[in-house]
Amino acid sequence: MPSALAEIVDDFQAVSERERLQLLLEFSQSLPELPERLQNHPEMLEQVVECQSPLFIAIETEPAPAGAAVGSGPVVRLFFSAPAEAPTTRGFASVLHEGLDGLTAAEILAVPDDMPEELGLTRAVTPLRMRGMAAMLARIKRKVSGECHLGS
């Protein structure tokens, strides 16, 4: 798991179940706004319909820095948009943003699909709601693998 994401997982694991919800709330508040170029072009965003509340994501790529490992693929920038009335969805998006934004395509594709379970939120948030986050991660990986053509 990429180190930024592993650190977030550790932060969640280190606190009690009730505090994990508080932590997720804090993440929801720190989800960055969309840059203006995307705010004005909703067609560049893709909706993750599996989420109970509307969530839109966009990815952009930048050339990998000099010295990056062979096959790492480009650097991936992630953008999320979810309404304020959906703090749980925003919280999940924010965890993925903080943990994955700016990594290479190969690093993102290596994230285990069951990573959301490691946050230890399943009981407090319920399995039903956790599936939204798993779907978000799956969508990001699918888009990254589709757009970055690793190995080709």
Partner: peptide, 19 residues
Amino acid sequence: DVLLYETGHIPGAVKIDWH
């Protein structure tokens, strides 16, 4: 949404989560 109450609620309201 399990966190919505925490973002702000009607004064005095308590939260009961359906799930």
